[in-house]
């Protein structure tokens, strides 16, 4: 069974067919076929430059494919036509996407309004409280630590109750407590929420997800969905991912 075949049901929310993305002459994603179904928890692994971030940006509509097709929630995710798809996606990337001059509360309220959240300020306050930042909610983001800023970025991704959550190395800059908080938020997402988590941390990635994908040179070299008929425990999954990464488990 191939990855494409594994997700051929009507529950597919992301479909990539022959997807390619190049930056100038340099290919970042090459002939990628992938289907992601509703409610899946996917860990995306790969070395630096493997194409993880590019793939997430293509799904989120930030990048336009150079060739091939990508459908998210049944439509293209970029441009004017992609607004419907983007409204259902929450993204956390390497950059905070926050306005440093504004407070955490103002940033979250701004994005809440743009996503059409009912009572965005109430939702912002709820998230700030859940993430333990109530004491700093009115401080400008530029005064927050790296870890605190990352927490606000995660809140921003969650502000509109997305049904597809794209997390690009969300653990970056987080201390142990915050990582635990992040893990809880990922696992607490409802069954209807799909999570794609790009990470270098194999331990964390495997423990929080049910499907592993390893990218190398912009291509999928391992997708656990293709061997889903074999029941694997997390230790076996870790070993398999590490073997494809060509290194030890972090």
């Amino acid at each position: 069974m191939t990855a494409e075949q594994s997700g051929s049901s009507s529950q597919a929310i992301v479909r990539c067919a022959g997807l390619e993305k190049s930056y100038g002459q340099r290919p970042a994603i090459r002939n990628l076929n992938l289907t992601i179904n509703v409610g899946e928890r996917i860990a995306l692994f790969g070395d630096n430059g493997a194409g993880k971030s590019t793939l997430l940006q293509l799904i989120s509509g930030l990048l336009r494919p150079s060739r091939g097709g990508i459908r998210v929630f049944g439509g293209q995710p970029w441009g004017r036509e992609g607004a419907h798809a983007r409204a259902q996606i929450g993204t956390l990337s390497h950059q905070s996407h926050l306005y440093e001059e504004l407070s955490a509360r103002e940033n979250l309220t701004l994005y809440g309004k743009l996503y059409g959240v009912t009572e965005p300020q109430v939702r912002a306050d709820t998230l700030i409280s859940e993430f333990g930042l109530s004491g700093r909610r009115v401080d400008p983001v530029r005064t927050l630590s790296r870890g605190m800023t990352q927490r606000v970025s995660l809140m921003r991704a969650l502000i509109h109750h997305p049904t597809l959550l794209l997390l690009d190395e969300p653990e970056t800059g987080l201390d142990a407590t915050s990582r635990q908080m992040l893990a809880e938020h990922i696992t607490e997402q409802g069954a209807g929420v799909t999570v794609v988590l790009a990470t270098h941390n194999v331990e964390m990635g495997v423990s929080l997800t049910t499907r592993d994908i390893v990218l190398r040179g912009g291509e999928i070299i391992h997708d656990s969905a293709t061997i889903s008929d074999l029941a694997m425990d997390t230790a076996q999954r870790r070993q398999l991912v590490a073997a494809h990464l060509g290194g030890s488990v972090s």
């Binding site: 989120s60 004017r80 607004a83 390497h94 950059q95 996407h97 926050l98 306005y99 743009l114 996503y115």
Partner: peptide, 16 residues
């Protein structure tokens, strides 16, 4: 520089 443009473009706004 701060990546906030990507944050806006990833939201369901009309670029116009």
């Amino acid at each position: 520089e701060r990546g906030s443009l990507d944050g806006l473009l990833a939201s369901p706004i009309d670029p116009g």
